[in-house]
Design a protein around this nucleic acid. Structure first.
Lengths: 204, 204
DNA sequence: CCTACTTTTGACCAAATGGTTAAACTACAT
DNA sequence: ATGTAGTTTAACCATTTGGTCAAAAGTAGG
């Protein structure tokens, strides 16, 4: 029983912490609010995670891993480049749509603890060089236009992430502040971003 | 004399507030730190701006206006679309490079006070519809590929802003955490983003 | 020099906040 | 039953924080 109980409350805490931290950010979040959201006593937070910082870092890690992972799947697949890119963009936008606040949160807190972030990236299995290498090879094969492969990857990430991270502003500017029609717009981007990118780089 | 002195300290406060708020965010910033940075007494902050919120809003407004303005210049110019887009992208990346923390800051605090943001946009003279209209006309003329004009504008903004807003992360991932070589990369993007966009939409 | 004013300051306050501690509770093994 | 280990809680604490206030300092005109 002991272990089950422990895991249970630890999960409750982490989940509550995610909600609160994502809404309020590291500095804006209150330990009391997290405790309330988890339905437990505040001292218990410190029992499981010693300090606010540690709780925050644990939270950040779990969120960060959610948004990052599937870059690598693109590299390992053996489809032709066009299909690789298509499924990558589509999947990625899909993941972001299901967690629309996470990109904002990550951007917000990127500066908080640089060493921790570096550590996190190292241990996350992310290997951007691999992706860059793959693009290089395709360029040598002549399937896509020659350019700095880092530009290509960063462009794709920009097109995927930014419109979601800045949703409140863009929805206000272009969609009458209606989140629903903005999300429909993002849904359509699964197609339009693919077209935009492929039109730019594909050699026919 | 009265007015000059007043403007002076008010400016000092605003400038100090910008530094601190941009570094620490709304919640992380301390009134005392802002006062120190401005070299004045903390009570004076409340004398000029009644509350932290008001000081923050004033700060946000002044920063927001810095990054937003030159969208409209693109519309009003009478160059052909290709040149319009080229100079827009180049100018915009240039502005962002000179204020690399501002995009992060705006993204961070976009959620803080939605009504205030809406007010701000209204009074800022921003008219995204105008830009959208312009793109539509060009598509009808057949100079650029047909697509949702909002997509086009948002794509360009994404490609310009995101790489700067997420500098700390991207520099860590692709540039050995060396800010200098990352900024050189951004400088090169003045050219490569133009190519990327024009390649995608221009009809030759 | 005096007066009316604005600007600036130091001292102060109540509330909030992250964190601690000692006691109570739980479940299991002996 | 009793002891023991981990878990949970209420009460508490030191510090920080945004904000106030009355008095001092500065300023300009009469």
């Amino acid at each position: 029983m002991t272990d089950i109980k422990k895991d249970n409350t630890e999960e409750k805490i982490l989940s509550a912490a995610q909600n609160v931290f994502v809404r309020k950010g590291m500095d804006g979040a209150r330990m009391q609010e997290i405790a309330d959201e988890a339905g437990i006593n505040k001292a218990l937070l410190h029992y499981y995670f010693r300090s606010k910082r540690q709780l925050f870092n644990a939270t950040f890690e779990s969120i960060f891993c959610k948004i990052i992972p599937n870059v690598m799947r693109m590299v390992e697949s053996d489809q032709p480049i066009k299909e690789k890119l298509e499924s990558f963009i589509e999947n990625y936008i899909d993941v972001l749509m299901k967690n629309p606040f996470l990109p904002t949160f990550v951007l917000k807190e990127i500066n908080q603890d640089p060493e921790f972030l570096a550590e996190l990236i190292k241990s996350s299995g992310l290997q951007p060089q691999k992706v860059v290498e793959m693009f290089k090879i395709e360029m040598e094969k002549g399937t896509i236009r020659t350019m700095d492969p880092r530009d290509l990857l960063i462009n794709i990430l920009s097109l995927n992430i930014f419109p979601i991270a800045s949703q409140p502003l863009l929805a206000l500017l272009f969609f009458d502040d209606d989140p629903k029609s903005y999300m429909e717009f993002i849904e359509r981007r699964k197609v339009t971003v693919k077209e935009f990118v492929l039109n730019s780089i594909l050699i026919k």
